[in-house]
Design a protein around this nucleic acid. Structure first.
Lengths: 210, 210, 210, 210
DNA sequence: TATGAATGAGCGTTCATTCAT
DNA sequence: GATGAATGAACGCTCATTCAT
């Protein structure tokens, strides 16, 4: 969760208080998001992190490994949050709304990670791409399960597959990284509320057909 | 509109009946979508297109130029289609629905272009990124204008900004390239219909709040 | 003798009244002098001359051939002028002085040619380098003969070989292209007069030893 | 001061006792002098030096950088020697004569550097050309100051600007690289003595006019 | 733990020249 | 005479990774 204040700083000195692996992860996230994975050389990376190449290769087996570590961090964070909302008490409509707002809010707070996530997945080794997709699918399924819960309760429309609704919603969320700016008019929570409003309105049973 | 049948073929021989620039464009679209822009070398590209490097540089000033040509082609095609729906007769709700279905259908028919569009925009030179973003913005604004038209007629809810609705919808559309497979269960039109249903249901005035 | 007015103009349009070969020669002289032979591409050359590549290769067998043509033009011009002074009437001291002034003046009027001459000789094919050196040697020998004539008359010192004196003088002349500017304080004739003064003073018999 | 014996050897094995950067510098000086800067490929260079391309780019940022390093080495060496003569005791005429002989001797001992110096200056980046010209100018001014010292003492003629005399002399010196051969009749010191004789004779006050 | 010199395969691009028309 | 598409070899340079210390 580097850059939690939402500011993009190009020449930020690395936080020397962080341990070497964390410093690398934090700097890599910023640089990969700014210039892209393939345009960021290991040399740039270690220079920006204030460590040597040797040190980097001591903690990460490859540049790819560093990228994978970024993926893992964001995947586990998102899954953890979603589990919180899914397992909470209360009507499924409310829990879904909260989860929907939260995923926008969290995405906006970690825009660099999201930008990397969708732009650089194909740069990961085949094995790791598979692993990431698998975790991602589990995340989607957890979300879908909430919709299906609502559908079986008659709270959500059933004429559109839950899968489609999830995919549509996450598509919009992922796309945030291409247009959202922290210094724009809307906060992450405001965007999340709008998004969730549209999403849940779309799911209302009586809304079918149009 | 290469790949109109939706099949991904890795070792397809280039269509020798096409002129050299078109052949390059077609092959580049396939390879950039399959392996990514930076993982596709100019050498691979020209070998797959059955031309020499010299020939490629005779028609395109750089690899970047080839990428930009792909962007131009897809941008102009999309804008042309949208203009058709926007300028048609009939209630705005119907025109918006048709445009919303069509953009999904067209995206699914040109999944390679879309995959490249969002994955490789950051690989374009700064000038060209700006040019692409500008054209893209115009496209969004054309779509937004239809929503605003409906809002002023009382057909669509006004408590969510039209901008947010557009962004959310196109986010979902762009995301298609990360999960849609032509050989899956749903056709492009089916997905488009579901997407448009959810989208328009979300916009209905009485749907507000939830 | 392009650029006879001494002005350096980077974007001069080619003189369309000149025949194609002359136009190429004139443009090539300017571009080779400005950017160097190897930094000037055939494409640039023909574009600047307003002809096509095919036309160029119709008149010159290669880029090297174009360079050689420049060498021949300047060599024959210099030799012709020197012959004029050498064959004239009057004391050898006067004829040598006039030739010495003239070679500076002519060099200054054709600075582009001189710049190319010494900078790009090694870019010529081996055969042509030999040919150029041979012609150049003949030129030197013609000049040296005048000095030897003066030495045998007792007009010039004999304790320094005529060869050394010639080489020293032409070294200085060639070097003009690295420092002389047409818009500086001195005209070509002024520089020539100073050079000839120093040169002839150095050759006076009583000047020996110092 | 590579090549101190004055022999040109095309296939000399690199001196493996030298450190990698020195080996590259030494080999580059020989190759650039033999074939010219642009005709010498980095591949040839590193093969001749017995290192890999990667190693070369570890020490030099570019081929241009290697060329610049050669310029720096020769510039600093020349300036150092001139300063020695200029700052010495004794009549200015003697000091100037010694400096004039020495610059010939040194040039002859480092003919490769001199050949590169004047042939390839235009291949250097604009910034570096400026830097080299500036250092060169300082060198000239140091030399000129000695002549002006003699002029103000009445030892040298004043009817020819000191600047002209310096330029003429160095022109001749630089030109050595186009004709002097170590295996010819004259040693560097002999040529230097002749050159200095002519030069100083030309500067004698009573020699004016002729 | 950490260094940084060295590797070597591969990159995008240039360019003088050819040749069917 | 003149065209310009096409060639193909070579170019300068980058870079993730290794390894002796």
């Amino acid at each position: 969760m580097q850059n939690t204040d939402g500011l993009q700083r190009s020449e930020t000195a690395p936080d020397r208080s962080l341990a070497v692996p964390d410093r690398l992860l934090s700097v890599a996230t910023r640089l990969f998001a700014e210039h892209g994975f393939e345009r960021t050389s290991v040399q740039e990376l270690v220079a920006a992190a204030g460590v040597t190449k040797g040190a980097m290769y001591h903690y990460f087996t490859s540049k790819d490994d560093l990228l994978y570590a970024i993926y893992q961090r964001v995947l586990s964070m998102q899954m953890q949050r979603l589990n919180g909302f899914a397992a909470a008490e209360g009507p499924v409509r409310d829990r879904l709304r909260e989860a929907a707002v939260d995923v926008v809010h969290t995405t906006v707070d970690n825009l660099d990670d999201t930008r990397i996530f969708f732009r650089s997945l194909h740069m990961l080794s085949a094995d790791r791409q598979t692993a990431v997709r698998k975790e991602r699918r589990q995340y989607h399924e957890r979300f879908r399960a909430m919709i299906e819960e609502g559908q079986s309760q008659g709270v959500f429309r059933t004429d559109v597959p839950a899968d489609i609704a999830v995919t549509q919603y996450f598509g919009a969320v992922h796309h945030l990284s291409t247009w959202y700016h922290a210094d724009g008019e809307l906060t992450g929570t405001q965007v999340g509320t709008y998004f969730a409003d549209l999403f849940l309105a779309g799911l209302r049973p009586e809304a079918a057909a149009g």
